[in-house]
């Protein structure tokens, strides 16, 4: 059930864009698709939507192959803004919705309501190219959801938005989830994924690194994070002597350590008290997605590794 992506492979000329990508998104979930530029996120989404054909593998929604569902099942927000530059905003929203069979009057009414909600009602009759990038992105989001799709696939929806617009868009995401929609979005912003996602998948150079619920993925590192602040900061010798403990960030206000799974973190609190220090802070948390990412993939590289050139040769 839900969205299943199974063993996708795709080759563009010499470049292996996808090499066995498998993950599952449950119905009604918010799913984060994490990876650097060129990791294969866009290619995966295009295959799920049927815009591209996979060399191998399949994808299904509610146990039926994706292509057997009507087009209005899917809402797609591409990475680059896709609006007619010289067409009034509301006209193109109505046009997009009409392609999915939504009556024009209803599409117009709902488009205007969304524009008002996104605080840009005055732009309804302006040309799209007169809007700022952030406002264009909000229009693009309206275009994605106006036909009331069951599954939203959004490629980097938060890129280029200021904090106010990020908050507006997040609220819209959560409302969509509450309406029972399934949301899949790709992002570099791991804190955003951590905040919004029930499940995530990390992809690197066409290979799936890990996938699962956000908690599972965070715990897939095999350790927990302990943050400790004591009166004896600076003298960490006793900490380093403890088994299954790695000091990752010795700091002035607190020290961060990894405790391997199977070892009780409370041991550290006891050891601190035994050492005779006063404990000001003791915190046990799962590693952040950012830590998981850095550990499993390496530092998030922001360099463009676009597939465009190799796609053109295919």
């Amino acid at each position: 059930m839900g969205l299943r992506v199974d063993g996708l492979r795709k080759q563009f000329g010499e470049v292996r864009a996808l090499d066995g990508v498998t993950f599952a998104v449950e119905r009604g979930e918010v799913f984060g698709f994490l990876g650097a530029n060129g990791a294969g996120k866009t290619t995966t989404m295009r295959i799920v939507l049927g815009l591209l054909q996979a060399d191998e593998g399949s994808s299904s929604w509610e146990d039926r192959p994706n292509y057997t569902w009507p087009r209005r099942t899917w809402g797609y927000l591409p990475e680059e803004r896709g609006l007619y530059a010289r067409m009034p905003v509301v006209d193109q929203l109505v046009f997009f919705a009409s392609l999915y069979g939504i009556p024009r009057s209803r599409a117009r009414r709902e488009a205007l309501a969304w524009l008002a909600r996104f605080r840009i009602p005055e732009y309804a009759d302006r040309r799209a190219d007169s809007l700022s990038k952030g406002n264009q992105q909000k229009v693009q989001f309206i275009a994605t959801i106006l036909h009331d799709p069951d599954v939203l696939l959004m490629d980097e929806p938060f890129s280029g938005l200021d904090p106010v617009n990020v908050a507006l868009l997040k609220a819209a995401f959560l409302e969509m989830r509450d309406r029972g929609k399934t949301l899949v979005f790709s992002t570099h912003q791991l804190d955003m994924a951590e905040e919004l996602c029930d499940s995530v998948a990390i992809i690197d150079r066409g290979r799936l690194v890990t996938a699962g619920t956000t908690r599972e993925v965070k715990r897939s590192t095999g350790h927990q994070v302990v943050r400790l602040a004591t009166s004896g900061d600076g003298d960490l010798g006793w900490l380093r002597a403890l088994p299954s403990v790695t000091v990752t960030r010795p700091g002035r206000d607190f020290t961060e350590l990894h405790v391997d799974d199977g070892s009780d973190p409370q041991r550290i609190l006891r050891a601190a008290l035994e050492h005779g220090d006063e404990v000001f802070r003791f915190e046990v948390v799962d590693p952040s997605l950012e830590e998981v990412f850095v550990e499993r993939v390496g530092a998030l590289d922001t360099e463009e590794r676009t597939l465009a050139a190799s796609e053109a040769m295919a």
Binding site: R46, L49, L51, R71, R72, W74, G75, Y76, P78, E80, R81, G82, L83, Y84, A85, F96, L99, Y100, Q140, A143, H147
Partner: peptide, 16 residues
């Protein structure tokens, strides 16, 4: 080409 260069193409190809 206008639809392609403005990437509107990707949006419409999902619908049509």
């Amino acid at each position: 080409v206008e639809e392609k260069s403005s990437r509107v193409m990707e949006v419409i190809l999902n619908a049509a």
